[in-house]
Design a protein around this nucleic acid. Structure first.
Lengths: 254, 254
DNA sequence: CCGCTGATTATGTATAGACATACGACGTCC
DNA sequence: GGACGTCGTATGTCTATACATAATCAGCGG
């Protein structure tokens, strides 16, 4: 392994270090986590192992690991080791809602229905939604979430099979795609667009609403290393859902 | 000042340090920032000054400051010093919208109208919205934001004068309360509730809409040290606004 | 007055060593 | 076998020192 770092000798401090060493270490660790090579729960190398790999002092490694721990990327336990953090599911920040979990938390009966499932070569429209140029295969899903016997949300989803090939093997008749993705694909970044709209005929029917009905529409795109994993549009009847986001802006505790 | 720290001598490492020193330093600095004693732009003490104050080594102070910088709380400039960060306005996380700035950014004409302004003793309903028990004075504002000549948002706001006494002095006929607050009051935490609804008569009139109209309603409460500064409800016509939130969940840089 | 140069200074990064603390593992004693 | 204590180990915190780097500022020469 030994990511050789030349002599720290004499005067000429390593001129091979293009940037701060600890940033390089951090980038390496993040890469391992983000790529999935080190899945949640994985025990990352001990400090003394990294010290050897990078041929640096423990303080340097410690700074990296403390930083990752502070950012919530890893969890550290004395005498035991450092582990890739689990959740990532619902950041304290903005709730990336797992509808099933959400409803379960409220203690309500939950049901899920897959309406349609199609695999196809991406259309021009699909490509735009996924922010890519060259064509690839996509999975197009439409499904319905039901709470207490009443339709709760209509979900229309596009999955980029180039980024998540295993998704093509999954039969989404029982597991909602959002739940499956959250559990299987690490992600990096998400963007929400939230709008209100009057329900169109498709939505009216899927959600068994009567005209006129206001709906909350959440469009979310989720990234992994600059590639969009999935783009989803979820429509909620106004009286059954509210999106809440609570956050601390900069890391000021208290 | 010297937050005396007993002898680091002999064997008996300070038993007066109830917890990690650097955490205590960090808490102190955050307190100064959050309380407003050190406003945005303020130059915080140099490392060597803190070293003297706390009677510790530079590395310890450096760890605190680096951490705060990483969290975006302060900005550091070589040879110059460290400064309380300005923005805090629109965290990379969830856009706490300053409507005026928003519209300006789009390059559209902006106008603002104060509809009503009342100071009163908090009613039971007000107290609930502000999450407090004992009564206090509040400022009740209602205003309208206009872009390109068309009403863009209806804002109904409650300000806790116990937390922000200076607000009572401000005449909000020209500066929107959101803009003023963002610029004058440091905050800690915010919570959004986002819903869709059919516009009621008040909203229809204020926004010059015709029935039926779907509106996006954002209710936001903003905290400063566990006290709610302000509670606001903003109603947008569906076709003129969409809330977007883009964020990186854990601090994993791409 | 302008522009260059060098000194000064605060932060940025790194090291080696030290002690503290939590916790698991293992062995001992009852 | 179960309660208990000891030991080892990984992380947590801190120190003292060193050199690098960026930016400001003063001084100097043109």
């Amino acid at each position: 392994m030994a990511t050789a770092r030349v002599s720290k000798s004499a005067n000429g401090k390593a001129h091979t270090a293009p940037q701060a060493l600890y940033q390089r270490i951090r980038a390496d660790l993040e890469e391992n986590i983000l790529s999935g090579r080190w899945p949640p729960g994985y025990r990352i190398p001990f400090e003394h192992e990294l010290v050897e790999s990078y041929n640096c002092s423990r303080m340097t490694v410690n700074k990296v690991l403390s930083g990752l721990a502070a950012a919530g990327v890893i969890e550290r336990k004395r005498r035991v080791g450092s582990f890739v953090a689990k959740p990532l599911v619902q950041s304290a920040v903005l709730h990336i809602p797992d509808i099933q979990a959400e409803i379960a938390k409220r203690g309500e009966a939950y049901a899920y229905e897959l309406l349609t499932r199609k695999r196809r070569k991406a259309t021009k429209d699909d490509l735009e939604r996924l922010g890519i140029d060259k064509s690839c295969d996509v999975l197009v899903l439409s499904c319905r979430h039901i709470a207490k016997g009443r339709p709760f949300a209509l979900e229309e989803r596009l999955i980029n099979l180039d980024v998540v090939p295993p998704a093509s093997e999954v039969d989404f008749t029982r597991v909602p795609p959002g739940t499956w993705l959250l559990g299987h694909v690490p992600w990096n970044e998400a963007e929400h667009r939230i709008t209100a709209s009057l329900a169109d005929d498709i939505a009216l029917k899927a959600l068994t609403l009567k005209k006129p009905a206001a709906c909350l529409v959440v469009e979310r795109r989720t990234w992994r290393k600059n590639k969009i994993i999935t783009s989803v549009r979820v429509t909620y009847p106004n009286d059954l859902y509210q999106l809440t986001a609570r956050f601390t802006p900069t890391g000021l505790r208290s």
